[in-house]
Design a protein around this nucleic acid. Structure first.
Lengths: 338, 338
DNA sequence: CTTGGCACTCCGGTTACCCGAGTGCCAACA
DNA sequence: TGTTGGCACTCGGGTAACCGGAGTGCCAAG
């Protein structure tokens, strides 16, 4: 009974604090919410919650503020799903449906996510390794210069230039092209690499041109540099941080420039199908101790790549989580269709 | 004589103010610089400069601060070229030489520019319209689905999918490919469009497949959506704004999200080969009245696209201009080689 | 035209002060 | 055992008063 009320108090404090940005006191609490007890009772509860580490006081004789632990409990146990409005859903779908290529999908996603959550949005480009090969094209720019174009199911295009040591006849190019495509087209990257290598190994003696092309393709397929690409949007929302510029915004801006850090932050979210929340100092980055990350995977099995937002620990978790989930869902769908 | 000294005073004030970020007074001025006159004399000069609108006082009895007009004069007439250090030059070249494709070039450019100037850097992707066609490839995904791949001299790749109403034989595809390439390869986009259209007009009766392909290509070539792409970097440098967060940083962050605004800002720089400087409220954007833009074109004839930085009006113009010029130069060279 | 002298201005930092919201604790009560 | 009203206490933040110093404008003399 008292236990229930304590959790209700915690929830109320989180909600009020997120809304008002000010430490919330016992009196204000009983007024705003329909708690049928006196402020003194609430004070006792708050003292207990503080004792357990869910709340803290900025200074003696100020209201209470949730700690990271408090937010964590709130997110894990007290959050009631807060579905997005019909209008918001529609906004997401129509905006995303207008995308014409992969770049466009990613950019529109950050944008809509930033707008919906009013936070900084981050979207990782689909990982190479999870996509399949749609087609491989070999273009003879000159008789001895070959352009190798790798087209993936996500819409990504990788191209490499190959210099041959001899000239290549048209029919040679044709057979090369069809053999490579036979091996790779439709396969997942990992399988394609295997099949391509088998292609070379099967030749006796191995054609130098073939091995060169295969080598280039394999190299392009395992080029994880492009895995590291991300799009960021909504940085203007940082302006709302208002206070705590140095302590919060500066490290965040720096993190946003450091793709590696961002990828790590998002990466945590890649497992399981659900929306992941990292609160405050839970991660390895001390400088980001006053920010939270809400992220999830997207694509088939939610394993293609991650997207999410980063904002102050003091944020509206229910709405934010709903928005992240919704965008991820629609992005997955769009990529599936394309 | 006195006129010369006045300009020297203005220059000294700009330099000191940029360095110290504090209004500069008469006494400090004569000490720092080797002016062989008394503070009182300087005061007279400063009063005159203020009268003419080059200086202003934050409040009565504080030092002087340059106005936009003061910076303008400084940039136009008082700037002595300030060559970059050998180390900096080397940093630019080596960093840019490591780029593997167009995306990489652009991203490395923003990065190096942001680092060099310690400002927010902006680089526009090479404009479609100024590049030439390197190759057109037609790939039969199935017998009736054609992938049209347009490869440009800048390294950009545009691809479109075409659905045919009938199946296409291999030799048909071959002739189609060679006719299209004959017309377009090596041409500037604008010329290629003309040549391609002529190709269709010359056919009697026009082959429906040919016109479909040409139509797709022309559409891809005139797709100005991709002209609007830009890369932004160094936003972490905004943290150095320190003061004036709301008045300066917020609108800037908003502008950085608005590609249109950025393109306009950069666009002004596109003419002439030189580095352009927009100071404070000189442009149409009132909200950006406390920021300056230093930009220039790059690519052959400096006409391919623009790059530059945006920062506070109180910036080190000589160094910044040198950095912008240098990066533009090396980017042009890299693109030329690739 | 330059210079030293001088009175004046005003910003910024410091101190003192008070108000009010909020707390902790205690004794009384259900 | 849990709840409630009462009460003294704390402390942040806002306001007012104050002061020093850097800087200016002006003037008269060189």
């Amino acid at each position: 009974m008292q236990e229930d009320r304590r959790l209700a108090v915690l929830r109320a404090i989180v909600e009020d604090y997120v809304a008002t940005e000010e430490p919330v006191g016992s009196k204000a609490l009983v007024e705003r919410h329909g708690l049928n007890v006196s402020p003194a009772t609430i004070r006792n509860d708050m003292a207990a919650l503080e004792e357990e580490g869910y709340l803290t006081q900025p200074h003696t004789s100020a209201g209470r503020v949730p700690t990271d632990k408090g937010y964590r409990l709130f997110v894990d146990r007290l959050t009631t799903v807060k579905p997005m409005s019909q209008a918001e859903r529609r906004a997401v779908t129509t905006f995303l449906d207008g995308a014409v290529d992969l770049d466009d999908v990613v950019h529109r996603s950050v944008r809509v996510l930033a707008q919906l959550t009013r936070q900084v949005a981050v979207v990782q480009y689909p990982t190479l390794s999870r996509s399949t090969v749609r087609h491989v094209e070999l273009v003879a720019l000159t008789a001895s210069r070959l352009l190798v174009v790798l087209i993936l199911s996500t819409g990504r295009v990788e191209q490499r230039l190959v210099e041959l040591d001899r000239e290549l006849a048209d029919d040679e190019l044709g057979t090369l092209r069809s053999r490579v495509n036979l091996a790779a087209t439709g396969e997942q990257i990992s399988d394609a690499v295997i099949a391509l290598n088998a292609l070379v190994a099967g030749d006796h003696p191995a054609s130098p041109v073939m091995s060169l092309v295969v080598e280039t393709l394999v190299e392009a397929m395992s080029d994880h540099r492009s895995d590291e690409r991300i799009a960021v949007g909504g940085t203007a929302n940082l302006a709302r941080f208002g206070d705590s510029f140095d302590s919060a915004v500066r490290p965040l801006l720096e993190a946003l420039e450091e793709q590696v850090v961002l990828l790590k932050l998002l990466g945590e979210a890649n497992s399981g199908g659900a929306v992941t929340v990292r609160i405050g100092a839970e991660g390895p980055y001390e400088e980001l101790s006053s920010t939270s990350v809400v992220a999830t995977g997207y694509g088939p099995g939610d394993a293609l790549a991650s997207l999410g937002i980063v904002g102050p620990t003091r944020m509206d978790y229910p709405s934010t989580m709903a928005a992240v989930r919704a965008v991820a869902k629609y992005v997955s769908r769009v990529l599936d269709e394309g």
